[in-house]
Amino acid sequence: MSSHLEKLQQAFKSNVTSASTKITAKRTSLAPPPPEAAPSPAPSNSSNTSKAGKDTKRKREVQNVVYSQPAATGYGSEAFTQVTYVIEFLKKKDEAKTFREILEYLSQVHADEATKKLIASILRRHDRVKWLPDPQLKLQTWDSGTFLHQPLINVRTKQDLIGYLQSRPDAQGVHVKDLKDGWPDCEDAIDELEAEHKILVTRTKKDNHARMVWSNDPSLVHNVDLEFQHMWHKTELPTIDELVRKLQDAGQKPASEDPSKRVKAAPKAKEKKKKAPRKGGKITNQHMLHLLKDYDKTRK
């Protein structure tokens, strides 16, 4: 019995020894692990700054564009800006337009009702727009009627211009640029009225365009015969000096003289003031007079 246990104990020890030998051999046969990689050097401030700048630039370039708002148009977005374009539209068409036609021009047909009402109310109160009610409606709505351009001066024909100038309470002239606000092609009519002596016109020196107009009375204009004009130009008129001398010989005083013939007195030269001789001042060192005394006269 004891011999059997001894055999088992020896067998167990041999198994343990052989197992430990195998494990040791397996460990030695394995390759050693590779050395750990050295840590990378810390980046400098300049590299950090350049990297941050590149990242920021990339972020700015990748910004998404918001397409929810419409692109800027020439009509403007505010109601008062819209009215400005409406006035130019009515001025160019020179005829009454409905509010529907105005909205079509502004591309505001599908705008909200509050915006439409605001534009209509501004147009009705504007001094450059005339609102004409719809004669077929007893009760006007906010979008009824038509709109017409109201110029600065409501003149569109030659007769209107003459009547307007004659009805003015003052004698001031009328600017042609104000006439063109409601009558763009008025220059031809102005030239015709000037030739008929019905208006007086001042013109620009550079382009000879009409600048201002006044009312004129054609009955005050008298034609001179051509024969008399030729006689007048052939007559030799005396010179100014001769005319003045003849008037003085006749005992009459000339109304005017040639300013170029006047003898101008030569300007008097300014005399330089002579400096007065310097007078002796008050002597204050009386106690030292004996030291300043001159003893040359006492010498022999």
Score class of each variant (00 low, 15 high):
Ser68Asn: 11
Ser68Arg: 14
Pro70Leu: 04
Pro70Arg: 04
Ala71Arg: 02
Ala72Gln: 02
Ala72Pro: 08
Ala72Ile: 05
Thr73Val: 00
Thr73Ala: 05
Gly74Phe: 05
Gly74His: 10
Tyr75Ala: 00
Tyr75Ile: 08
Gly76Thr: 03
Gly76Arg: 01
Ser77His: 06
Ala79Leu: 09
Ala79Gln: 06
Phe80Ala: 06
Phe80Asn: 04
Phe80Gln: 04
Thr81Asp: 14
Thr81Leu: 09
Thr81Ala: 04
Gln82Ser: 11
Gln82Phe: 11
Gln82Leu: 09
Val83Gln: 03
Val83Lys: 07
Thr84Pro: 01
Tyr85Ser: 07
Tyr85Asn: 07
Tyr85Gln: 04
Ile87Cys: 04
Glu88Gln: 08
Glu88Lys: 03
Phe89Thr: 02
Phe89Cys: 00
Lys91Val: 00
Lys91His: 09
Lys91Gln: 13
Lys91Glu: 02
Lys92His: 09
Lys93Ser: 01
Lys93Ala: 08
Asp94Phe: 01
Asp94Gly: 03
Glu95Trp: 06
Glu95Arg: 10
Glu95Ile: 10
Glu95Lys: 13
Thr98Tyr: 10
Thr98Cys: 15
Thr98Gln: 11
Phe99Ile: 04
Phe99Val: 07
Arg100Ala: 13
Glu101Trp: 08
Ile102Trp: 05
Leu103Lys: 06
Leu103Met: 14
Leu103Ile: 03
Glu104Ile: 06
Glu104Thr: 08
Glu104Trp: 12
Glu104Gly: 10
Tyr105Ser: 08
Leu106Val: 06
Ser107His: 08
Ser107Phe: 03
Gln108Phe: 02
Gln108Ser: 10
Val109Met: 14
Val109Thr: 14
Val109Ile: 15
Val109Arg: 12
His110Met: 15
His110Ala: 07
His110Lys: 15
Ala111Cys: 10
Ala111Arg: 06
Asp112Pro: 08
Ala114Phe: 15
Ala114Gly: 15
Thr115Ser: 11
Lys116Ala: 12
Lys116Gln: 12
Lys117Tyr: 15
Lys117Leu: 13
Leu118Thr: 14
Ile119Trp: 00
Ile119Glu: 01
Ala120Met: 07
Ala120Tyr: 06
Ala120Asp: 07
Ala120Arg: 10
Ala120His: 08
Ser121Glu: 11
Ser121Gln: 14
Ile122Thr: 00
Ile122Leu: 12
Leu123Thr: 05
Leu123Met: 11
Leu123Ala: 10
Arg124Phe: 11
Arg125Tyr: 13
Arg125Asn: 14
Arg125Gln: 10
Arg125Pro: 04
Arg125Cys: 14
His126Gly: 12
His126Val: 02
Asp127Asn: 13
Asp127Ile: 05
Arg128Met: 07
Val129Trp: 02
Trp131Ser: 12
Trp131Val: 09
Trp131Lys: 12
Trp131Pro: 10
Leu132Cys: 07
Pro133Lys: 11
Pro133Leu: 14
Pro133Val: 11
Pro133Cys: 11
Asp134Thr: 09
Pro135Asn: 12
Pro135Trp: 09
Gln136Trp: 13
Gln136Pro: 07
Leu137Gln: 11
Lys138Asn: 09
Leu139Arg: 13
Leu139Thr: 14
Leu139Ile: 15
Gln140Lys: 13
Gln140Asn: 10
Gln140Ser: 13
Gln140Thr: 08
Thr141Val: 08
Trp142His: 13
Trp142Thr: 14
Gly145Glu: 04
Thr146Glu: 09
Phe147Ile: 00
His149Arg: 03
His149Cys: 02
Gln150Cys: 04
Gln150Trp: 04
Pro151Cys: 01
Leu152Cys: 02
Ile153Pro: 00
Ile153Leu: 10
Ile153Thr: 00
Asn154Asp: 06
Val155Trp: 00
Val155Tyr: 02
Val155Lys: 02
Val155Ile: 01
